[in-house]
Design a protein around this nucleic acid. Structure first.
Length: 315
DNA sequence: CCCCAGGCAGCGC
DNA sequence: GCGCTGCATGGG
């Protein structure tokens, strides 16, 4: 397999190298860690847009290689920068007042400042987060992997086992019902929702490229998504943040809800997080953190909470 | 059998 | 319109 390669320096925050490399996984559910023969480097393989992208982080330099010199018609270097969010501003992610009010939390979150928000393929992001309802991350990754092996195009069989692209909307729209249910953690409702959304995308009724366009606002994109069954505010916010690059999105899941209460005394007035209370919490969190990049701030806090406070290791 | 997991939809007030 | 409850599944 012929590789085209390029290198670029990564302006990463000062953090242990292995930590920085690991954090590239961020919200991606389809990253595979490769064995690192060099202790100073960490290697990853990502499947993006039907191409296999191999990445290694070595000191301050990122090396990327791909079987083609461009992805989606873009030069590889440009694609990698965008996909990894390397060229996006990270100034003032927490506004000064936040740093002053919550110095402890601020220090903890900044330990994860090497983490970027991947800008993943919109359809893959959408379906992946539709699989993320009431299940743990390990199960999400399994579902996404199952979808790929059953309905995705075979890319190659190197590295021991076959690698598949994420399925196209058509493939999922016409998927065998029982197979799709098995892929969706045996959840028939989820399978039905995934099929319906895939069909809408395949028919052009739901145009993700339009939602991705700079002329489409965060709220317009969000409102378009939540009209579909199986997509609520949280999943729509994840797609907006991780698929469309909307920095003002602030997805609130069970972990975020926990740290908002624990650290900032922000809590829902209702037992369950109703849509109205969800929006209210979003607004108050944005007010606290600042408007520069709530989506990224949320991700750093998310990891600080999960790893250091709750001691969770998945990812 | 309990609780939890990167929530959502239906129903009743 | 808004909140409470049920739901659905696997894993610890």
């Amino acid at each position: 397999m012929q590789h085209h390669a390029y290198t670029a320096s990564i302006p990463l925050h000062a953090a242990p190298l292995n930590l920085r490399a690991t954090l590239f996984c961020g919200q991606a559910f389809r990253w595979i860690e490769l064995p690192a023969s060099d202790p100073n480097a960490a290697y990853f393989q990502a499947v993006v847009s039907g191409e296999v992208l191999q990445l290694s982080v070595h000191h301050e330099v990122l090396y990327a290689a791909c079987t083609s010199s461009s992805i989606e018609g873009e030069p590889l270097a440009d694609f990698v920068n965008k996909y990894l969010g390397l060229s996006r501003a990270m100034d003032n992610v927490f506004q000064p007042s936040f740093q002053k009010k919550f110095p402890e939390v601020y220090r903890g979150a900044m330990r994860y400042a090497g983490l970027r928000l991947l800008q993943q393929a919109p359809f893959e992001t959408l379906i992946s987060f539709m699989c993320a309802q009431g299940v743990g991350i390990a199960l999400i990754r399994r579902q996404v992997a199952e979808l790929a092996t059953h309905f995705g195009k075979l890319l190659h069989t190197e590295l021991g086992e076959p690698t598949y692209a994420f399925p196209t909307p058509d493939a999922l729209a016409s998927a065998n019902r029982n197979t799709l249910i098995r892929c969706a953690n045996n959840n028939g409702i989820r399978a039905k929702n995934i099929r319906a959304v895939s069909k809408a995308v395949a028919l052009g009724e739901l145009n993700l490229n339009n939602l991705l366009s700079p002329t489409c606002s965060y709220l317009d994109a969000r409102n378009a998504l939540v009209t579909y069954n199986g997509i609520g505010q949280k999943i729509a916010d994840c797609v907006c943040a991780f698929g469309f690059g909307h920095r003002e999105a602030f997805p609130i899941d069970t972990h975020v809800r926990q740290y908002l209460q624990q650290w900032f005394r922000l809590r829902s007035r209702t037992v369950s997080l109703t849509p109205k209370e969800y929006d209210r919490l979003c607004d108050r969190a944005r007010h606290l953190i600042g408007d520069a990049n709530p989506a990224l701030a949320g991700q750093w806090l998310f990891h600080y909470w999960r790893k250091d406070v709750k001691g969770m290791t998945a990812f």
